[in-house]
């Protein structure tokens, strides 16, 4: 860092393009949206910035509060599932031999190489009424002669409901949960586990008293990396959810498109952003508790 201070020109030359990019393409548009949230719609494309708080008050309408509440609920379920499914995966990868580990990590990262839209459409093919899951179930149903007992096969409704949305978000965000937890487990000093076994702890007890507490910071990172983007997701509920599984992201998108009410959409966006900031403020608390546990190893 010292060399930066001694050569300020180099510092600015390296930093300026990034700073310029951030200001022109992020902060300025964000500022426009922020201003717009205090505006009124005057015509199809006319918006007057009047300083009104009407848009924010509208957001507290029970309809939107209900959607917001559902969004938080879905995000929490998704986060929980990602941790519960992701932790064992991270654990297995961290404890597998180095050669195998490389391939397993590659497998975790492979989905990043495929566009999320394509992956989500693929899920439609899997879950729809005449999709792969129902197809397989029907085949098993016929094979086991269950139609004689319960009548003809009824396809399971797996698409355009909350189940599909939760599945879709978990599917997309699982790698974001696995990677930080893998990093934390991999860092864990193996001699601690041996010491616990030596002192009489079973594998399960070692996991509960040593592994889990010492990888808490990885879990905290995973929670935030999944929960925050899940709150703002709109593509997955749009494609897999149908009208009953709308999340707040869909409402915002609708204001900017179908409803053509940009000021209200802007206000909702900022409310979501403030909520995210509030959650981020919780992170240091989570991590501090975890760091206290991990000590200065």
């Amino acid at each position: 860092m010292e060399s930066w201070r001694r050569h300020p020109l180099v510092f600015w030359a390296m930093g300026l393009p990034g700073i310029f990019w951030l200001i022109v393409f992020f902060l300025v548009p964000l500022g426009f949206v922020w201003l717009m949230s205090f505006g009124e719609k005057r015509g199809i494309v006319d918006i007057a910035i009047t300083g009104t708080l009407e848009n924010y008050l509208r957001a507290f309408d029970p309809v939107y509060l209900g959607i917001l509440f559902k969004t938080v609920r879905i995000s929490l379920i998704v986060t929980l599932l990602c941790i519960v499914i992701g932790y064992p995966v991270a654990y297995v990868i961290a404890f597998s031999p180095p050669k195998v580990r490389t391939w397993l990590l590659l497998a975790i990262m492979l989905p990043f190489w495929i566009n999320m839209l394509i992956r989500t459409y693929a899920l439609i093919a899997v879950f729809r009424t005449r999709g792969y899951v129902n197809f397989t179930l029907e085949w098993l149903y016929g094979l086991l002669r269950l139609d004689a007992l319960f009548g003809p096969f009824q396809p399971l409704p797996m698409l355009y409901n909350e189940f599909a949305v939760i599945f879709g978000i978990v599917y997309v965000f699982l790698p974001f949960a696995v990677l930080p937890m893998y990093a934390a487990i991999e860092r864990l000093d193996r001699s601690l586990l041996e010491a616990a076994a030596d002192l009489g702890a079973s594998r399960f007890h070692t996991f509960l008293t040593i592994t889990l507490p010492l990888t808490r910071s990885g879990i905290a990172s995973a929670v935030l990396l999944v929960f925050i983007p899940a709150l703002g997701s709109f593509l997955i509920p749009e494609l897999l959810g149908g009208p009953n599984a709308y999340m707040i992201g869909n409402v915002i998108a609708a204001q900017f498109k179908k409803a053509n009410d940009w000021p209200f959409g802007a206000a909702l966006s900022f409310l979501l952003m403030y909520a995210t900031f509030a959650i981020l403020a919780v992170r240091p608390l989570l991590v501090r508790r975890a760091a206290k546990g991990e000590g200065a190893r």
């Binding site: 001699s191 041996e194 010491a195 616990a196 030596d198 009489g200 702890a201 010492l214 000590g295």
Partner: peptide
């Protein structure tokens, strides 16, 4: 190892960093 009547002092000591001295000994 958890069923053997032997105990070990590890080269790195392997003290549990999230526990106090007393908790380590009591483990």
């Amino acid at each position: 190892p958890n069923h053997r009547p032997v105990n070990m002092v590890f080269q790195s000591y392997a003290l549990f960093p999230h526990m106090t001295v007393a908790e380590n000994v009591a483990y």
